[in-house]
Simulated scan of single mutants.
Amino acid sequence: MRVIRNWSREILLFLMALLFLSPIYIIFINSFKTRSELYENTLAFPAQFTLEFYEGAMARMDFFNAFLNSMYVTIVSVVFIVILSSMTAWMLARSGNWISTVIFMTMIATMLIPFQTIMMPLMQLVTGITRNTGIPLYNSLSGLIFMNIGFHAALSVFLYHGFIKSIPISLEEAATIDGASKFGVFWRVVFPILTPITATVMILNVILIWNDFLLPSLTLIDRDLRTIPLSVFYFFGEFTIEWNMAMAGLTLTIIPVVIFYIISQKYIIKGIGEGAVK
């Protein structure tokens, strides 16, 4: 009976895996097809595997420029998110007064607000600041990075906050007695212990920022500033959609994130389990 139950569980998990992987299969297979083959049978293999459409997609997307823009925005945003969120969470967790509690709960509450409800006032504010003060927040990668830091800080602080509460405060007290400053206590004692949750925060933010389409589409106008999701969007025209080119572009978009996830996946469950749950 136990053997039957185990086999049933394995079969169910296998079928669920096929279900969740089916969109990736469809995107990958159709990226090699001509338009006529694509419309004949979406699930069938192409007559021949050729990189013709990938070469065309890379040329149309200006792929290497878009890739560098996405890498720059993602890396800089994640670095600042990790530094600022970890320090903020540490101060909020160790202060222990009602002000820090109010600040923390306010940050958590912002996670419940859909971005779509604030995007128009945000764009009016950003364009006004850019026009009146000259600070490049609109149609600039620096402005996009600034907004990414703000929008992704709440989740990161939440994860760090739970993890920091599980660190014995005696370690920090010992470092203080040894003569370490508050800055030294955090960077030499606390931050190295945060490695598992830092990896989780990095992975989650890399995936969110790399795949983000809505915010870059609102803030970036020039072709030279487009990120990869924006470049892929232009295969979907008003009257025609080049599905094979679009599928090739989507595959190129997915590959870097998949590689990064495979390398770092072991930290996700470990970090969330040791951080947010505690």
Rank of each mutant, 00 (worst) to 15 (best):
L250T: 12
A57G: 05
F146R: 07
N65D: 12
M58T: 02
P216M: 12
Q124W: 11
K165P: 01
G273W: 02
L215M: 13
A180Q: 12
I113T: 08
F235I: 08
I83N: 05
R35E: 14
S70V: 02
I26F: 10
A175C: 06
I268V: 12
V73N: 02
I254P: 09
F63E: 05
S100P: 04
T74E: 08
S86C: 00
E55C: 13
M147A: 12
F80R: 05
M119I: 14
E274Q: 10
I99A: 10
N97G: 11
I75R: 04
L171D: 05
F191W: 10
Y39G: 11
E10Y: 15
I259N: 08
V157F: 04
R5N: 12
A199F: 14
W98I: 13
Y261S: 14
L220E: 06
Y267S: 14
N139W: 06
G249Y: 07
F163Y: 15
M147S: 09
A246M: 13
F260D: 06
S166G: 08
K165R: 12
L218Q: 03
S231A: 15
A57F: 00
W210Q: 08
P192S: 07
H152C: 12
L252D: 04
Q48A: 14
A153N: 12
A248F: 06
L68R: 15
L215F: 11
S70K: 00
I269N: 02
T198C: 09
A57P: 01
T117V: 13
F239E: 14
L141H: 07
S36N: 10
T34N: 10
I103K: 01
F104S: 04
S95W: 09
S100W: 03
Y234W: 02
F104N: 02
I4Y: 08
S100I: 06
M107Y: 10
I108E: 09
V82Q: 10
V232R: 04
Y138H: 09
F115N: 03
T198W: 09
A180L: 14
P46S: 09
L208K: 10
Q116R: 12
N69M: 10
I269L: 11
W210A: 10
A276I: 15
L194F: 06
M111N: 04
I241E: 08
R2P: 10
A175Y: 06
A199E: 07
A154Y: 00
A44N: 04
T106D: 08
R60S: 14
L252R: 00
S36C: 07
V157L: 03
I221C: 02
A175V: 07
T200C: 02
V258Q: 04
F235H: 08
S70M: 03
L15M: 15
E238S: 13
L15C: 15
F239R: 14
P216E: 03
F64V: 03
F14L: 14
W187L: 04
R35T: 14
F260V: 07
M202D: 01
I209S: 00
Y261H: 06
V277I: 14
W187I: 00
A276N: 07
T133Y: 08
I164M: 15
I169L: 11
F14H: 02
P46C: 01
L250I: 05
T34C: 03
A109W: 01
L220K: 11
L252W: 04
V257E: 03
R60D: 14
R60C: 02
D212F: 03
